Amino acid sequence: MSDIHESTHHYSPGAAPGPDGLLLVWDAPNLDMGLGAILGGRPTAAYRPRFDAIGRWLINEANQLSAELHTRLEPEATVFTNVSPGGADVVRPWVEALRNVGFAVFAKPKVTEDSDVDPDMLAHIERRRSEGTLRGLVVASADGQNFHETINELIDDGLPVTVLGFHEHSAWALSDDAIHFVDLEEIPGVFREPLPRINLDKLPDEGACLQPFRPLTSLLNSRQGS
């Protein structure tokens, strides 16, 4: 764990003002949970998102926004993730691969149930906003409770906002006409194989089993009454 901190400690999201740009923040714990719910278990290599494809999509989005605003925008992307105690060896290759693609990584130890990365993501967005360099935002997360208010503020300020996620878990974004929603599977090359998705509006005649978002035993770690 210490070496991950050493490799990322010099990077505090938004530590130095950047050029005007399109910012992507990626909520790894949240999207991993959503993907696991679709698959009914831990994703295999065939079902893990390819960040090179996401990077190319973001570059294209930045170019399109540049044309609309008649100014040159730079794409910027940061993946926010938790690292469980003793889990550094498992996470390290993934972190290094992301950085090689061109993504920054903010890694935070998962010490307690409340050690989420959402506040860090919101702080990064607010930092870019206060610097005056934010020209567009892409939020890759299904957590509308934490991000919806900030997204609405940015939209009110005239900034375009896109939400990346899975339509099964993003009703909050899909129901908001001001938010541009993109399902991850719509981005070319993100998944090597089609996801085995179940649409409640188009169920097979024999029915389908929808897997839980988390194991029942997770209740033992949650606060009573939460």
Score class of each variant (00 low, 15 high):
residue 2 S to M: 13
residue 3 D to H: 14
residue 4 I to Q: 10
residue 5 H to I: 15
residue 6 E to R: 13
residue 8 T to Y: 06
residue 9 H to E: 12
residue 9 H to K: 14
residue 12 S to C: 07
residue 15 A to F: 10
residue 16 A to K: 15
residue 18 G to H: 14
residue 20 D to Y: 10
residue 20 D to T: 13
residue 21 G to Q: 07
residue 24 L to G: 03
residue 26 W to P: 02
residue 28 A to Y: 06
residue 30 N to V: 03
residue 31 L to M: 09
residue 31 L to S: 01
residue 32 D to G: 10
residue 32 D to L: 10
residue 32 D to W: 04
residue 42 R to G: 12
residue 44 T to F: 10
residue 45 A to G: 06
residue 46 A to G: 09
residue 46 A to R: 13
residue 47 Y to Q: 12
residue 47 Y to E: 14
residue 49 P to S: 08
residue 50 R to I: 08
residue 50 R to M: 08
residue 53 A to P: 00
residue 53 A to Y: 00
residue 54 I to T: 05
residue 57 W to N: 07
residue 57 W to I: 04
residue 57 W to E: 10
residue 62 A to S: 14
residue 67 A to M: 11
residue 70 H to D: 14
residue 81 T to P: 06
residue 81 T to F: 08
residue 82 N to H: 08
residue 83 V to S: 10
residue 85 P to Q: 09
residue 87 G to F: 05
residue 89 D to E: 11
residue 89 D to W: 00
residue 89 D to N: 12
residue 91 V to H: 11
residue 97 A to C: 01
residue 99 R to H: 01
residue 101 V to T: 15
residue 103 F to D: 03
residue 104 A to G: 10
residue 104 A to C: 09
residue 108 K to S: 07
residue 116 D to V: 12
residue 116 D to Q: 15
residue 117 V to K: 07
residue 117 V to F: 07
residue 118 D to P: 03
residue 119 P to H: 11
residue 123 A to Q: 15
residue 129 R to F: 13
residue 134 L to M: 05
residue 140 A to M: 03
residue 141 S to Y: 01
residue 143 D to C: 03
residue 146 N to E: 13
residue 147 F to Q: 00
residue 149 E to Y: 00
residue 149 E to C: 01
residue 151 I to N: 02
residue 154 L to D: 02
residue 154 L to I: 04
residue 155 I to W: 02
residue 156 D to Y: 02
residue 157 D to M: 12
residue 157 D to E: 15
residue 159 L to W: 03
residue 160 P to E: 12
residue 161 V to W: 04
residue 164 L to N: 00
residue 168 E to S: 11
residue 172 W to V: 00
residue 173 A to Q: 04
residue 173 A to Y: 00
residue 175 S to Y: 00
residue 177 D to L: 13
residue 178 A to Y: 06
residue 181 F to P: 09
residue 182 V to D: 05
residue 184 L to V: 02
residue 184 L to A: 00
residue 185 E to I: 00
residue 187 I to S: 04
residue 189 G to A: 04
residue 189 G to F: 04
residue 190 V to C: 05
residue 190 V to T: 07
residue 191 F to L: 12
residue 192 R to F: 00
residue 194 P to C: 04
residue 194 P to W: 05
residue 195 L to K: 09
residue 196 P to H: 10
residue 198 I to T: 15
residue 201 D to R: 15
residue 203 L to G: 05
residue 204 P to N: 07
residue 205 D to A: 15
residue 206 E to S: 14
residue 208 A to V: 02
residue 208 A to L: 01
residue 209 C to E: 15
residue 217 T to N: 13
residue 219 L to F: 14
residue 220 L to Y: 14
residue 220 L to R: 15
residue 223 R to P: 01
